[in-house]
């Protein structure tokens, strides 16, 4: 079930994209999502498309996996696109029936939104496929550091984030195990009426919560035993290094942004 999901997982590799500073990748991905909204015609979408495609090629990850990443979201995308197509009027009108219509602008808008979705999903899939979760949380900690001035507990947030990320796969395994154990005792997950489905989740959720509590207690004890006393005065083992490559990313993005501004109408 869960293991079919590609989106949000990491594939180890050694491409130029893999080696980028996670901060650069994280900021670039957010920035990319923001500048997608600058695009408003074919030329600008083409420019973004080529850019994304080149980034994917550079990561040396099979393109197939990116399409798989889209798959779970395909209904949401199609639903939005169809709504756009049917409810936007303007330009040449090809067909209409009541509130529904098929118009030049509608089709154009629908296609643009489709491209936007695909590009955003591809870019964020690229981010997660090439960045190990722990680097990601390091990057977030590093980027949030300035907020320390505003008394935001940056270290604690980062710690919780990295513990949470570390335990996602463990909890997934645990879920799978408990699910199997309960199925062996005759539970049908995801079958029957809505009420039956909800009831079937209880034998899964309660053991999961209980084991999370136990795990949390054990982990806290183990951390204290190893001398953890909070973020004050700690040194770091993994140190992020900003290299010329990473500055290169900024340059590339500046060029793309200028290109988009020129191309947009």
């Amino acid at each position: 079930m869960m293991n079919k999901l590609i989106f949000g997982r990491y594939i180890p590799g050694d491409s130029i994209i893999h080696r980028l500073d996670p901060r650069a990748k994280l900021v670039a991905s957010f920035y990319f999502i923001a500048i997608i909204f600058l695009a408003n015609n074919w030329q600008s979408y083409l420019c973004l498309g080529i850019f994304t495609f080149v980034a994917i090629l550079l990561s040396k990850i099979n393109l197939r996996f990116f399409f798989r990443g889209v798959r779970p979201l395909i209904w949401l995308i199609l639903f939005t696109v169809i709504l756009q197509i049917l409810f936007t009027r303007g330009g040449t009108l090809y067909w209409s029936w009541g509130v529904f219509s098929l118009s030049e602008y509608g089709i154009q808008n629908g296609l643009f939104i489709f491209c936007r979705f695909i590009l955003i999903i591809f870019m964020s899939t690229l981010l997660t496929l090439t960045t190990p979760p722990l680097s990601m949380s390091d990057a977030i900690e590093s980027l949030l550091r300035p907020l320390h001035v505003l008394h935001v507990p940056v270290h604690e947030i980062a710690l919780m984030l990295s513990i949470a990320l570390r335990f996602v796969p463990t909890l997934m395994d645990e879920t799978e195990k408990i699910m199997n154990a309960q199925r062996a005792r005759g539970v049908d997950f995801g079958e029957g009426s809505l009420i039956q489905k909800v009831k079937a989740v209880v034998p899964l959720l309660i053991p999961l919560f209980v084991s999370s509590f136990n795990r949390a207690e054990d982990l806290a004890t183990a951390m204290e035993a190893r001398g953890y006393r909070g973020g004050e005065g700690r040194s770091k083992y993994r140190i992020l290094k900003w290299s010329n490559r990473d500055s290169g990313v900024i340059v590339v993005f500046v060029i793309v942004t200028i290109g988009l501004i020129v191309l947009r109408t």
């Binding site: 645990e174 154990a181 005792r185 053991p207």
Partner: peptide, 11 residues
């Protein structure tokens, strides 16, 4: 089937 560490299935 009695799985490994079956005590995790009690609820």
């Amino acid at each position: 089937i009695v799985f490994q560490f079956p005590e995790a299935q009690l609820f």
